[in-house]
Design a protein around this nucleic acid. Structure first.
Lengths: 212, 212
DNA sequence: CCAATATCTTGACACTTGTCAAGAACGAAT
DNA sequence: ATTCGTTCTTGACAAGTGTCAAGATATTGG
């Protein structure tokens, strides 16, 4: 009997703990999201915890309550950002019933994300570069890179399938190609080049049939 | 006569001035080269002028004598770095007499630069990302990007020519592809992945005949 | 050789940075 | 309502930052 009581008490305590943990984690994500605003604006190099706090509803102390470290915060930001990114084209892939439909759906999302989420994307490239210097970033960055590669591969596979073909190159090469094009277009777009987005779309439209 | 004298004097003065300018510029390059050491080690975000000075034979004041600004210094570094980079494969292109020869020459240099100059290359990616945030970098970075694209195009054109073909894609797409592959391999290499370089070589070896 | 100019050193400045600790405000359980 | 643990605020600290200016040193021109 005593056994059962302590067992029940343990269960209650455990439940309380996971609840606390969930709340704690939800707060971390809230803070990470707020931090992403400033990081996207200023980049990793110029962003300080105080600046993050000032551009948000929080005080700088909270960040140290929820994160052991500045790197800890940034890592959390990166992981959170990842979850949003990799599913961007999933419904296009799922619903497209022809090559043209897939192409246009893909290109539309591509243009939109380049236009509306330029700051988040440049932050991604910033952090990926940081990972070349800061070992603490590498695991997360490599993981995200992999899921982005998989994302591109899903699109290409589906595109090939709709044409009863198979992709002509490896997942790595395909991802490298699209990532390179996107990165270049992003830089030009941020530099005020109005032709960057349409040129990217043209290039991708031309490329898709040749690689799949 | 007086005219001629002042003319001569002017010429002498001018000559002296260009000499001073040359010396000044040579010193700038010296300092930039020293700065590149530390920048390649720590990255843009973590590099301070004092750290640069400490890792060199100069004191931190000199840098402010020769550069108006930290950005001015970094820009000079980037420009200097550029000149070295874009000619890396030129002799391979010039001397290769067959596709195989060009391929192997290219791959050998590619592997060597990835192995021996990883720090410089990660700095380049770092600075290119910074250009997405810092407008002052954009002009130089875009210019370097263009000459790198041209460099890749020279290789691809020659490769195609040696097979009596024409490159199958645009310069931009080709550069995006190789740059993306290189960037990914560099990150993996820096993360300690021993297979990164051979895998890059394999990928490029496979890719070359399909794109040209 | 001397004066003038260019080059470099040194130390100081105002400011920002990450980190931490003391305690206030809050919420929940007794 | 009181106590206790969580959550948050505030202010301080030491270390590091870019910038500058005064003066030392070296180089050049007369």
């Amino acid at each position: 009997m005593a056994r059962q009581v302590t067992g029940a008490a343990r269960r209650v305590a455990d439940a309380a703990e996971v609840l606390r943990d969930e709340k704690f984690n939800a707060r971390r994500v809230e803070l990470a999201e707020a931090a992403l605003e400033t990081l996207g604006e200023l980049g990793f190099a110029r962003t300080s915890l105080r600046e993050i706090a000032q551009n948000s509803a929080f005080t700088h102390g909270v960040f140290h309550y929820y994160f052991s470290d500045k790197l800890d915060l940034i890592c959390c930001c990166v992981r959170h950002y990842k979850a949003k990114c990799v599913t961007r084209y999933d419904d296009v892939v799922a619903t497209a019933t022809s090559r043209d439909e897939l192409t246009e759906g893909f290109l539309a999302k591509l243009a939109a994300t380049l236009q509306n989420e330029a700051r988040m994307h440049r932050l991604w490239y910033d952090l990926r570069s940081q990972a070349m210097f800061e070992a603490a970033f590498r695991k997360d960055v490599l993981e995200i890179d992999k899921s982005l590669e998989a994302m591109i591969w899903r699109i290409a596979s589906r595109y090939a399938e709709l044409g009863s073909k198979r992709p002509a190159s490896s997942p790595a090469a395909l991802y490298a190609l699209f990532d390179g094009l996107f990165q270049s277009a992003l830089l030009k777009h941020l530099a005020g080049d109005k032709t960057a987005i349409p040129e990217l779309l043209d290039e991708v439209r031309r490329l898709l049939p040749t690689v799949c």
